[in-house]
Design a protein around this nucleic acid. Structure first.
Lengths: 106, 106
DNA sequence: ACTTCATTTAAGCATTTACTTAAATGAGAA
DNA sequence: TTCTCATTTAAGTAAATGCTTAAATGAAGT
């Protein structure tokens, strides 16, 4: 699954917030923060893994989860790019408008 | 619908990209960029509206759509906040580690 | 008043999603 | 080996999603 779809679920976003705070958590500690079943959360973790929004490290019995900032940043990069394209358009537009008034911004 | 869910669909993200480029588009011009029906896209636009990711302006017969950067930015702010919390943790952690070695970063 | 054009809404349907309970896996402790 | 613990997978289900076609709305042109 891709990052955007993975982020559409509020529980999954909350898991990421938790992980950012705690740095690293074992699955059980994540489950305990949610009202729904361990299985439900495990399924969310699987989706977060497949979107590469989290990474897992095994330590004997435990799975230690952490956020993968790299992938999260790709999301804000997408937004940044939209913003950049949009701002560039705005600039050109304002130049045209100013040119029509006989002025010009360099 | 909230911004995250609205962004989970690729067609909706593409609509936003289009709007960022063109600045403002009437619904028909948006439809024409997609293989699916006008109705399908209209439904996507409805969702984007309800998530406040786009704004509409009526001009007689037409509906003129544009991106709403404010809402888009809320998304990258969420990412930024996660990043900030995470980085703060990393910092504290590295301070602890360095303290254990007898050194200390201010 | 009729027609056209731009757009949305309604209804129906297939697919996906998020959840549940029950069963499976797999490592470590007794 | 047997038991427990941490976690995932399987199977089933109800609700949500994304699409389609057909019908509705509503402003503008004739």
């Amino acid at each position: 699954m891709n990052a955007f779809s993975a982020l559409s679920d509020p529980s999954r976003r909350q898991i990421l917030e938790l992980l950012a705070h705690k740095g690293q958590m074992q699955a059980t500690d994540i489950y305990s923060e949610f009202p729904s079943s361990a299985s439900a959360i495990s399924q969310h973790l699987k989706i977060l893994r497949s979107a590469r929004l989290v990474t897992v490290e095994r330590d004997a019995k435990l799975r230690l989860y952490s956020v993968n900032m790299d992938t999260l940043c790709e999301v804000s990069n997408w937004v940044a790019e939209i913003n950049q394209v949009w701002a560039a358009r705005m600039n050109r537009l304002s130049n045209v408008l100013l040119a029509m008034k006989g002025t010009h911004v360099k």
